[in-house]
Simulated assay, not measured.
Amino acid sequence: MNQFIWSFLCGLGEAKYLNRTFVMDLNMCLSGAHTEDGKDVNGKDFRFYFDFEHLKESVPLVEEGDFLKDWHRWDKKKGPGRMTVRKVPTYKVTPMQLKRDKSNIIWRQFDGKEPENYWYRVCEGRAAKVIQRPWYAIWKSKRLMNIVTEIAGRMDWDYDGLHVIRGWKAQNKKMYPNLDADTSPDAIVSKVTKLIKEWRNLYIATNEPFYYYFDKLRSHYHVHLLDDYKELWSNTSEWYNETTAITGGKPVPFDAYMKVIVDTEVFYRSKAKVETFNNLTRDCKDGINTCNL
């Protein structure tokens, strides 16, 4: 998701630099690296994860479906009034080179192989000095943030946070030689009890799939996990009603990307914070020998 945002905001920043309206496809493809079955998932709606209304208020933007309807109507014109299109087949054509282009539509196409088919490449090099990514335009979905507010509220906004990263990183002993041992149940108890007062509400944000993995902490804290709040996205929830309104009644799975957004936002709102790579392990966040980069 971070890679998507890095490229997406590059595109928005380029449109702003060129004083143009950005045409946006709401469909997203989620990488299988973070889906529950390990497979890429196409056709996810941007509005499930981000606040589209705020985005539209923040930058000149039009949804692709609406734009194409108008384009087909405009394109029927013949002669001088017809729409002109400039197709840009490579990221190597810089925003500065397009600044004076008079075409009605500039259509960037990313047909190359990775990493040449990512929009963020447009904002590298000299372009990095002139393109400003509009970070202010990106807010998390209100539907997900309502869940965050509800979870924090049930703990009276008085809780501490523990962020435990395991998953594939804990399995990769070459890049992370200590992570698995440093985030074992016993090791976590030993370190957390030195950092957080006992019997506080403790919210654990984690990618560890085994629910009972943190049970030893329950002898010291009132432990809260995201799965304790499943009713907030069940088929009787407000979130469910609002997302099915987008899909025309088709149920929306509460996927791993949504869980990470909620988990992270609840953790950010905690008082004392214990993090994996700052507090629990000697390993570097990006693997061995990267701590000082």
Rank of each mutant, 00 (worst) to 15 (best):
F48D: 11
P89A: 12
F46I: 07
D215C: 02
S270F: 03
L225K: 01
E242D: 15
I196V: 15
S270K: 01
D111Y: 12
L226P: 01
M175S: 14
P115W: 10
M83N: 08
G161P: 02
I5K: 11
Y268K: 14
E238F: 02
H220A: 08
K174R: 09
Y49K: 02
G81I: 01
Y159C: 01
N278K: 13
Y159F: 15
R82V: 10
L293D: 11
L18K: 09
T183A: 04
N19P: 01
T281Q: 09
T243A: 08
N172M: 05
M96S: 12
M1F: 13
A205V: 01
E265S: 11
L293T: 10
E124L: 11
A170P: 09
L162S: 05
R133E: 13
D70W: 11
E36D: 11
E265H: 10
P209I: 02
L12M: 14
W6A: 11
G125Q: 09
A170F: 05
A15D: 11
I106R: 09
R20A: 11
T243I: 14
A187W: 04
H222F: 13
L217D: 12
H34C: 04
L162P: 08
L18F: 07
W239C: 02
N2S: 14
E63H: 08
M1E: 05
H222I: 08
K44F: 00
T244V: 15
K216N: 13
R82Q: 15
H34M: 14
A128Y: 04
F110E: 10
R282E: 09
V41R: 12
R47I: 00
K92M: 13
